[in-house]
Nucleic acid binder design. Structure first.
Lengths: 232, 232
DNA sequence: TGCATTTTATTTGTCGACAAGAAAAATACA
DNA sequence: TGTATTTTTCTTGTCGACAAATAAAATGCA
């Protein structure tokens, strides 16, 4: 509702990107709930621009599956498909493996610095018990590893999966507020070491184990919820 | 240039999809060369609609990497990145494996019928020595297998790779006009059999072998071209 | 009151127009 | 003639308005 627009002056091509980035973050941080309707005119008023650039941003978001648009009728934030979470987890685990392995193979020195940066940001956020930052920096950490692997096809799919994962982890931490495992930080450190040592097999193995640990933990929560739903 | 628009009457939401589909096919069939500029007003005239829906179609195509758009300046058909073809092949081979394996695991009877349909279309096109149809039905065949695997994340990446592959195969067949291997038809048949038998390992193995055969063949061509470039 | 039909309201898809940016052309100047 | 600067041209990004499509409300009728 409250909008902090300091500059009414906007550069020519920047409006779309701004709306896109902001909406994307709000969706991934669950600030806008899945299923919420998205109103073009409302957004146009909020950002003080015409509907045209708003629409372009929405088309992009729809292209990444973050919003769904019914023809001639409402557009809304995509729901999380709990029924088919296993397909998400399958893809996530495989991409963790592949990207970590490729990073061990193809990284350059400067990549390690970037990865370490996010690693430290994550550790800091964990100490501060800051969910949102933890989730976002964790995603950034693994995205940086994928970038170091230098396969844009894998990177883009992995980014999409990490995005979707941000929403799911968000739900997870809303249920388990006091759960902040140092373990993940240690695993991250081990992954970095394997990448730096160019040990493909170890990187692959660690990536797989790390992914499966996260998946197992999240699945535990949702299976509990499933049982709850059935009980109702 | 010549446009066959029989109906000047268009339904409300159909314009964007029409432009999108047509442009997409023209790009993938190399009817528009990589690097060609795309002019919005020209398209608007050609399809007899305003620039707005044209633009939406272009944004979609850009989202899939089929066109590239320089801010405030021209937009053009994406070039094929020959320098990094190996990343494409890596991703392609892995997705061939994964989707074929998942199809063996998760397919339903009705999927087989669809897959067989494209299989036969491919065989027909091969007999007719019709490049364009061969390439398109081959992509459709493997996309159908991916659909039977029922993992939308893998399917969407694989679709993108198959699309890009259409352009590359197009180049390939432009060089080797008389090369129409029956072998691929046989391999397709074997893949269908493995899927139907729900033999995951065999499906995986065949998918990998099939992919690597295609990759090897294409690489042979391009490595020859590479040498040529160096010789010049 | 309950259901079918018409009317109104809301939201999207499309349009034509205009202005900002960048390249190309034209001009000035050495 | 060659380079710097201005002018023109061309394309894109944005705008406000209108029309089609759908949902919601109102009305009619039993």
């Amino acid at each position: 509702m409250t909008e902090t627009d300091s500059l009414p002056e906007r550069k020519r091509g920047s409006g779309v990107k701004m709306v896109y980035d902001l909406l994307r973050d709000e969706i991934l941080d669950l600030k806008i709930a899945p299923g919420s309707p998205i109103d073009e005119v409302q957004l146009a008023e909020r950002f003080k621009m015409s509907r045209t650039p708003i629409r372009e941003a929405l088309v992009r978001l729809a292209g990444e599956g973050l919003i769904e648009t019914l023809p001639n009728r409402s557009t809304m934030v995509s729901n999380i498909d709990f029924m088919n979470l296993h397909t998400f987890f399958d893809a996530l685990v495989l991409m963790y493996r592949v990207t970590t392995r490729l990073a061990a193979q193809s990284h350059r020195p400067e990549d390690i610095a970037i990865i370490r940066g996010f690693h430290e940001d994550y550790a800091t956020a964990l100490k501060a018990r800051d969910h949102l930052t933890m989730i976002a920096t964790n995603a950034a950490f693994h995205a940086a590893i994928a970038e170091a692997g230098r396969n844009p096809y894998f990177t883009s799919l992995f980014r999409r999966l990490l995005d979707e994962g941000r929403r799911i982890l968000q739900l997870y931490y809303q249920s388990y507020e006091e759960h902040f495992p140092q373990r993940f930080v240690d695993e991250h450190a081990a992954i970095i070491a394997a990448i730096e040592a160019r040990d493909l097999e170890e990187a692959d193995r660690l990536g797989k184990a790390h992914a499966e640990a996260i998946v197992a933990q999240v699945q535990k929560l949702f299976s509990r919820n499933d049982r709850l739903d059935i009980a109702l």
